[in-house]
Every structure is written in structure tokens, then in C-alpha cells.
């Protein structure tokens, strides 16, 4: 086993163990009076959203790198990160409404943050759709989506925020609690490690796929 492979196994094991232990760590946090047990979703929800953001940034940067430099490695990183962005995005968008239902009484609120997260998820979803159904050469096009998507995120957030603040709204959306305890940072670390581990596995897979394809082509020629 090569050093890199061993590192992947270690990363997977550590993040797996940390996540297994996370309910116990979360249990040490004080019980929130109004939200009750549901409040504990936050310890997963927030790190997941952060991991999604991280994936989006990684995908965008790697896409730009691939677009302007045509580095195969960058393409592997971009596709892996886009998948992470979509997966963690789904998790964020599932855990969010669970929280919202208890906190605001509705499953979904068109609040600036939620709306822009949803749009961002759509952008990286379209990245994957493009790669999957675009046919030959779609990786360059997908890279443009990834790069464009990443750069646009602040503008999307800004425009949605402006839409919200300039729009008459009678639903008072309370701001999310800012007190972040040890469990939150613990979970955040665990999810970031999981992200790194899954990324390594996925990049490795993509690299092997590239090798296999080249080998096929060599045989055919």
C-alpha cells in the first residue's frame, strides 16, 4: 500500500470514528429550552453547510485552473468537489427544513441564506448534469459552469439579500444562534475531515478511470 492510500484509510477511519462519537459529544452541550432536541440538528446542519461551501470553492478554483491551464488533475479535483457540494447540499437542505419546522413553524422560508444555498446547489447540480449528459468534451463546459458558479455565488447572495430586504415581508426570521460550543467545532472538524477523505477517494477513482481510458485507447490504436 502506498503512503497516499494509507493516508486515505487513516482519514476515513478518523472521520468515521469522530462522526460515530459525535452524538455523545453533542449530548454534552446544554439542552436548549425552546427548541429542545431539534436544536441539536444545528450541530450537523451548520458543518454540512460549511462543507458544501468549501466544496463549492474547491470546485470553482479547480475548474478555473482546468479551464485556463488544462490540467487533468484539476479536472479530477473539480468533479470530486462538485459531487461533494451536491451531496452536502442535499444534506443541508434536508436538515434545514427540519429545523425550520420547529423554529418557524414552516418547512421552508424564502430567506436570503436559504434561497442562495438552494441556487448554489442548483448550480453544482447542473455542473454534474452537464458532465453526465453533455457527451464528449463536456468537462471543459462543466468547468466553465463551476468557475462561473463560484464567482457568481456572492452576487447571487447579494441579489437575493437585496430582494429580501427591499421586499415587504411580514414573517420575522430570527437570526440563527451565534453561540457555538465545543460540539459544533468538533462536528465541523469531523465533517471537514470526511470531506478531505471522500475527496481523496474520489480523486483517486477519477485518476484510475483516466488511466483505464488511456489504456483502452492504447489497445484500440
Amino acid at each position: 500500500m502506498k503512503l497516499g492510500d494509507r493516508l486515505i484509510v487513516v482519514l476515513l477511519a478518523v472521520s468515521g470514528l469522530m462522526l460515530t462519537a459525535s452524538p455523545y459529544v453533542i449530548d454534552t452541550a446544554p439542552y436548549e429550552a425552546t427548541m429542545g432536541l431539534v436544536q441539536r440538528i444545528f450541530y450537523y446542519h451548520f458543518p454540512m453547510a460549511m462543507t458544501m461551501m468549501l466544496s463549492a470553492i474547491v470546485c470553482g478554483a479547480a475548474s478555473a485552473w482546468f479551464l485556463f491551464r488544462r490540467s487533468e488533475r484539476a479536472d479530477h479535483i473539480a468533479v470530486a468537489a462538485a459531487e461533494m457540494a451536491v451531496v452536502f447540499g442535499v444534506l443541508t437542505l434536508i436538515t434545514g427544513p427540519l429545523w425550520a419546522r420547529k423554529s418557524w413553524g414552516v418547512w421552508w422560508v424564502w430567506d436570503a441564506r436559504i434561497t442562495s444555498t438552494f441556487i448554489m446547489w442548483l448550480v453544482f447540480g447542473s455542473y454534474l448534469l452537464l458532465r453526465r449528459f453533455g457527451g464528449a468534451g463536456s468537462e471543459v463546459l462543466a468547468a466553465a459552469v463551476g468557475f462561473f458558479g463560484m464567482v457568481l455565488v456572492p452576487f447571487i447572495y447579494y441579489s437575493v439579500n437585496l430582494w429580501k430586504t427591499l421586499h415587504p415581508s411580514n414573517s420575522v426570521v430570527p437570526s440563527l444562534p451565534t453561540s457555538m460550543g465545543i460540539p459544533l467545532y468538533y462536528c465541523w472538524a469531523a465533517f471537514t475531515l470526511l470531506f478531505v477523505a471522500l475527496m481523496s477517494v474520489r480523486i483517486r477513482l477519477e485518476r484510475s478511470r483516466g488511466w483505464l481510458e488511456r489504456a483502452y485507447r492504447a489497445v484500440e490504436d
Binding site: V123, S126, L130, F133, G134, L141, V145, L152, F155, Y158
Partner: peptide
Amino acid sequence: LTRTSSRDVLLPVVLYPMSLP
């Protein structure tokens, strides 16, 4: 997208979230 196979479907999928602002 002109060079991709399912361009008709992919254009709105890519375009709507991107042009949102």
C-alpha cells in the same frame, strides 16, 4: 452547449440559476 448532445435540456438547467441576479 452547441457541441454537447443534450443541449436543449441542459441550457435552461445551467442558465436559470446562473442568470438569476
